[in-house]
Every structure is written in structure tokens, then in C-alpha cells.
Design a protein around this nucleic acid. Structure first.
Lengths: 239, 239
DNA sequence: CAGTGGTCTAGACCACACC
DNA sequence: GTGTGGTCTAGACCACTGT
């Protein structure tokens, strides 16, 4: 019943914030159940959940659907200016990366895609839908569109590997420049489902367009990241 | 009482999502009060709030403290690779930008700052705490640290203006390169308070380090953005 | 099966904004 | 003042996980 300086959910938030920062709770540790926490602090489950959701927004904890709340591991650092593949930068940071191809189809280009790739509407594009994980935790959903005319037989390659490396090795293609767009937004329902997390959680949406040296678009990439899984690092030279 | 295909809060979410996308609700429009919405759809306030918070996570609506919920305006596009000032890129996108200096002090460098600026611990740094708005809506809190030894008398300048332009005009300094780091995280309590929004909302944290041509650090900048106010755009050349 | 989080009801009081 | 969102109580049932 205390109406002290602080709201109760913020006090509970600070409690766990402290435990995690001090290392009393470590990455991957499971928190007590919401009901247990409620009993321990004489709080309603709703209040407990508000505290947990605030910690989740901080990126300090995450939930596995109906399994419980867990302390978040450190974030992956993603540096587009290094032109490294996911496997390269995840491994070099001590994570064990994994890629799954969820779907792989040829789809006709709509008006927008036709514009981007400078092809006529209806031309078939390779659509690659992948899920990438580190240490067994899914953190990223990719939707990649590639113009197969530029890369004959690419659809018969093993597409769970690094596209960067695949293109270099088999087709001699080399990325020349890319446009990136970052937006913090809730994960779309489908991406959240693919990641196994509830709809509406904050996420990071990245759109990437890769160009060949001659300016032709090689690859269009929509990425949906867990908001707490990644830090973007970029080094810019100018001006 | 319907336990149909969809949760009730997701149905309500879709309802407003549709209204906003169709333009029936426009940027800046106020939504009905939580209690009114609850009556209209026979839902509890908690369920209504869950739907509203999901729309907020999408960036479609935002709240003004105890005033109500409003439809979000379009995002500001921030392109660090263009080396433009806030005023330049906000104006060119049709927004009316504004900058307020919340605080301006000389602070002794701690160990970390001393390392970054390659000065001895305790040397005085200029700390600039600013709030930036577009069309009257605060969207960004800045904490800037500058080594005043490199820029004599800078503390007597009008510091609500663009630092980029100020440095160019008065000191001949020109940025040469910068390191950027982006992280999606909840806004710290103080930043949320400065922005007039509740603690714990998702936000975008940007850390920027600006270097002189000789590699000396000119400026260290911590930025906290509303998550729904900005899209980061970057063009990279390589490799 | 029991335990977990996910959703929801039907209220309550508070602090603050606006009039 | 009244009305708003902010916080909180004390329950409930459901869907799914792991045994």
C-alpha cells in the first residue's frame, strides 16, 4: 500500500535491473514465474508484468512463449561498413550463428519491385525467406529478393549459406554500394511468429539495397531484428 | 465474449490501423478517450490500453502525458552520410525544427571521457544538453561533450544553433569522419522526462563520435530519439 | 497432469491538464 | 471543477509447454 516516491512497478524494475547489472542474474538465467514474483513482493500479476515489460523494453530480459522470462545475452554488433557476412561477424564475436531457409520461391515482380530492379512487371524474382539465430536464439528474419537473370542457377545453390560469399565465389559478383534504412517499429505479426515471440514487440526494421558496380540492383533485403539483439555500428569517412 | 480467431486487442488494433492507413484519422488527430473506446467496443480499459500500446509500438500513435492519444506524424529522415545539420534536413523535409539548450556546463572529464578525448582526467569539458523538436513536438534529447581547448570561447557562443555550422564558420573546423552506434532500447528516465513522455517507452539511442582530420576527437554526442520519430538512411560506398 | 505466460473482467484511486 | 491517462487490486479462463 505504500505510495512512496516511486511506483511499485518501477521499484520492481530497479530490483531486477540491479540484480542483472551486478551479475547475480546472468545471461540465459530464468526469472521466477510472474505469480511467484507477485507473491514475493505482494503485487498483482499485472503490476509484475508491467515491470517485466519495462525490463524487456530495456533489452535486459526477454520471454520465450509460455516458458518464462530470461536474462538477455549481450547484443550482436552489426557493422555494415565492414562488408562482412552474418556468419563472419557473429563468429568473430564469439557467437554460434545459424541460418535456416524458411521458404524459397520464384515470385513475379510487382510494380514496386519492377522499378527497383529495372525489369518489367511480372518478371520472376527469387524470394528467399530466412531465419538467423545466434546460440540457438532466433534474432533475425530476412526477406531477400534477387534477380535470377543476373545470377543464373542461383536457385539451385544451397541458400542457407552466406549470400555475400556465394556471390563472390560462384558468380564473381561483388557489392559496390548499398543503401540502408533503419526504422524502430513493432515487429509485423508474421515476423514475430517466425521468431517465436508475441506480436507487437518492438523491433528493428532494416531495408538494404545492394548495387553492382554498374549501378544495377543485385539484391533487395528486408530484415526484422529483435530490438534487443543487435547494435548497429558504422564508421563514416567524409566529407 | 467472442473467442473468435483473433484476440480482442488485436481486433481493436486492426480497427485503428485501418482508420489511420485509410486517412480517416490524420496526423495529429486525437483519438477518443480510453474509456470512450472501451464503451464503444464493450472492452475493459486494460484491453483498450493494450491495443493502444501496440499501435504505439508500431509508431502509428503517440500519447501526450494525461492529454490523450494522437496520430503520429510522418518520420523525419536522418541521413548521417549527408553531413547535414538537424535544421538543414528537418527544414528540407517540410518540418519546422527547433532547438532548446536545457543546460550548459563545464564538467571535469572522467576516466572514460579522458580516454576518448586523449586529455588528462579532470580537464574541463563543455557539456551541452539540448532538446530538439519538429513542429512543436520534442523528438530528440542530446548530450554533447566538446573539448573547449580545441575551440576557444565556444562556451560564449549561442549554442542552440547548429554546431556543424558554428564550427565551420567560427573555428574553421571541419568534420572528417565519425563513428556511429545505434541501439534500440527504452528511453532512460531522464530523457523520457525531458521529452515529456512516460518512462520505459521504446527509443533509439545513438552515440556519435566526430573526429578532426588529424584524428583528434572533436565532439562526443549521445542522442535519445523517440522511436517513432526518425528513420535512419545511409548510403555506403565500398569496398 | 501441473505450471507457465497470454488475455480479459470490473472495478478503484491518483496526479495532472484544462477550463 | 471535470476529464484524462497512470497505476493498481483481485480475481478469471485460455493455450501452450514440459512432465
Amino acid at each position: 500500500m505504500q505510495k512512496a516516491n516511486e511506483n511499485q512497478y518501477l521499484q520492481l524494475h530497479q530490483h531486477y535491473h540491479y540484480l542483472i547489472q551486478q551479475g547475480a542474474l546472468k545471461a540465459g538465467d530464468k526469472l521466477p514465474s510472474e505469480r511467484e514474483i507477485g507473491e514475493q513482493f505482494s503485487l498483482t500479476r499485472i503490476t509484475v508484468r508491467q515491470a517485466l515489460q519495462t525490463l524487456e523494453a530495456d533489452g535486459l530480459i526477454y520471454r520465450m512463449n509460455r516458458k518464462g522470462w530470461f536474462v538477455s545475452p549481450p547484443t550482436l554488433s552489426y557493422n555494415p561498413s565492414k562488408w562482412q557476412s552474418f556468419v563472419e561477424y557473429a563468429s568473430s564475436q564469439g557467437f554460434t550463428p545459424n541460418t535456416e531457409v524458411l521458404n524459397q520461391t520464384l515470385v513475379p515482380a510487382d510494380t514496386n519491385m519492377a522499378n527497383v530492379f529495372q525489369i518489367s512487371k511480372g518478371t520472376l524474382l527469387l524470394h528467399l525467406h530466412r531465419r538467423r539465430s545466434v546460440d540457438g536464439r532466433p534474432i533475425l528474419i530476412e526477406h531477400i529478393y534477387i534477380n535470377p537473370c543476373l545470377l543464373p542457377n542461383i536457385e539451385h545453390e544451397e541458400l542457407s549459406q552466406s549470400l555475400t560469399q556465394l556471390l563472390r565465389r560462384n558468380y564473381g559478383e561483388t557489392y559496390h554500394s548499398m543503401d540502408l534504412s533503419f526504422k524502430s517499429t513493432a515487429l509485423p505479426t508474421t515476423a514475430a511468429a517466425d521468431l517465436g515471440i508475441p506480436t507487437g514487440l518492438p523491433g528493428l526494421h532494416i531495408q538494404r539495397t545492394n548495387y553492382r558496380p554498374d549501378g544495377v540492383v543485385l539484391e533487395l533485403d528486408y530484415e526484422y531484428w529483435r530490438h534487443d539483439a543487435v547494435t548497429i555500428e558504422i564508421n563514416m569517412k567524409g566529407e
